[in-house]
Design a protein around this nucleic acid. Structure first.
Lengths: 338, 338
DNA sequence: CTGAAAGCGCTTACAG
DNA sequence: CTGAAAGCGCTTACAG
């Protein structure tokens, strides 16, 4: 009953050829006669033989496994909008190359060394980092040690050139802010997340750029930082509603923040968008369903996943010669924007 | 500059001991003198040596990698509520045993054989299946071939006994329905998802059981099936509002469905919970934030992840002797329930 | 086109 | 407590 694990030697014996020949057939080497190939393939099928990946790896160079590092905090907050499509995109590209994704959810306290060992022990060929913070030491460690990695979102500014894919967050925020400006708004608030994340910093910059283009001096009182959650948005908006000259328009760095802000606004019996217009970020599935429907800025996340996977495969062969990839962000109008 | 990869032989030479002794030190064997151990450990540290996992695996039995299979469809729909905490729980347990999670997002068309090869090629020690459908052939394939697996959520009814962790969905739905019954509701609707999922089937059964206990004959017109999304809930509720004797209370099989249903109800200018009370499932992060706050049934998802990981480690050693694990579902009252 | 043999980097009886 | 040697299951020059 119990199937005994069959190996390359068994196949060789059964097919009356050498182990080397079986190996050549497995690896699709051209140096095998059609007749021999067929014979060996038949035995392989018949005995449902699967070459040991580890034994292969011991002889070959690559493991065909890539580690995906995800900070739990963000995994939780933005999961709905972010990780499933990101992973889907990656999977699509990696499947074709028979690469597998090893998932590491970064815990705190965060010990970068722990994750390096996946590479040093030869388990993975490298890393894909998802949304690490600006001051995260991990990318620099990888860089120093010549370990292949791709970052989804930019990381430390200390690195001159490294492979990443990113959304054009500056432009996304710029366009959303410009929309408000063209509608005649002068008091436009920004609900920021933690500026330790580059994507937050970029959205901030896009906002500032647009204001300046229209000759408006950014008012620090209109820029409030909090978590990217509903709670964060609610609290931030509460603050804004209390100042002397409250905003007539609000750009939030996430849709959850925008939803919290809407709660705060409606609580004061103000109208959206008549009294305060609002635009979020992420284009969540529910945006079109809430009342009023929430305008947002969309990222091409599945596309980012694909590009990250492609870039990773590229740098394995070309560690020097690569270009970072920037994908567009698109402003999606809905009624909340006015 | 370029670090040459160091191996166990190098360490042995540097430490003036045999390869076998280095191996013993690495594996914490007691048969090494304290003096030798320290000497070897020092060299290992000094040269930042990491034993090759693949070479170890070739000699040892286990790979210490488990494949987590996630259907993309559900990954997308319930990600926010489900996968991040599930993975977090699993990670917590696996980290301690130095197990890694390999992530496979199941694509369609779905080819079960593709995923079996992860095991047959010796890459993983087994599988954790997340929310597969009732008719999914994969669990039976694994069972037939004696491949270790744990399922999160029950699977095919063809298998007599297999390791799974599940939420007590029957009880959860029973309690929510009972709440309505105790409030005097007679016309209680159920918004179902696809009954190909056991958790949907179970929620359905809990609902039926409660009705029967109160001597109410289930009315097929009050049971509507659609997708577990906002859209699905909206459409299902629209149907219910059109029947002659519409429900005064609604249990939805997901919070997204409940949110869609609320949209449909409010569109008709009906009041929640006065005209129609509503309870969802999942206890999403946003439930308390919407208007009116949405009552729900909560699962202990992070706990499921932990239990799944523990059960997996258990069955590796005890393929026969194990018990499935059922975790509680808790009704969370909020205003929408009335 | 094919095979014998060395090698990948470990672990583990076995002998002492 | 320690070491020499065989073995895990492959790949790949090398020779023919």
């Amino acid at each position: 009953m119990r199937k005994v694990k069959i190996n390359i030697r068994d196949i060789a014996r059964l097919a009356n050829v050498s182990v080397a020949t079986v190996s050549r057939v497995i690896n699709g080497s051209p140096n095998v006669s059609e007749k021999t190939r067929k014979k060996v393939l038949k035995i392989i099928q018949e005995y449902d033989y699967h070459p040991s990946a580890f034994a292969q790896k011991l002889s070959k160079a690559r493991t065909q496994i890539v580690a995906l590092l995800i900070p739990y905090e963000r995994g939780f907050i933005l999961s709905d909008a972010f990780f499933p499509p990101l992973i889907k995109g990656m999977t699509e590209v990696f499947d074709k190359k028979e690469y597998n994704i090893m998932l590491s959810m970064i815990e705190s306290p965060y010990i970068p060394q722990k994750y390096v060992s996946l590479y040093k022990r030869g388990i993975v060929d490298g890393y894909i980092l998802a949304n690490v913070k600006k001051d995260d030491p991990f990318p620099e460690i990888l860089y120093e040690e010549n370990i292949p990695f791709v970052s989804v979102g930019r990381v430390s500014s200390k690195l001159k050139k490294y492979p990443y894919v990113d959304t054009d967050n500056v432009k996304g925020a710029f366009e959303a802010t410009t929309y408000f400006l063209e509608k005649g708004h002068k008091r436009i608030a920004l609900l920021k997340g933690n500026s330790n994340y580059n994507f937050i910093q970029d959205r901030y910059e896009g906002y500032i750029l647009a204001l300046k283009k229209y000759g408006i001096k950014p008012d620090p009182k209109l820029i409030v930082e909090d978590t990217l959650t509903i709670d964060g948005g609610y609290k931030a908006m509460k603050k804004l509603l209390k100042i002397n000259n409250p905003p007539t328009a609000v750009l939030a760095c996430s849709d959850y923040m925008a939803i919290g802000a809407m709660d705060a606004i409606l609580e004061e019996k103000w109208e959206i968008p008549e009294d305060v217009a609002i635009i979020g970020f992420d284009d969540l599935y529910i945006d079109g369903k809430i009342e009023p429907p929430l305008a947002s800025v969309r990222q091409e996340i599945e596309e980012m996943g694909k590009e990250a996977a492609k870039l990773f495969l590229h740098i394995l062969d070309n560690p020097i010669d690569f270009e970072p990839i920037i994908l567009p962000a698109t402003f999606i109008w809905r009624r909340s924007a006015g």
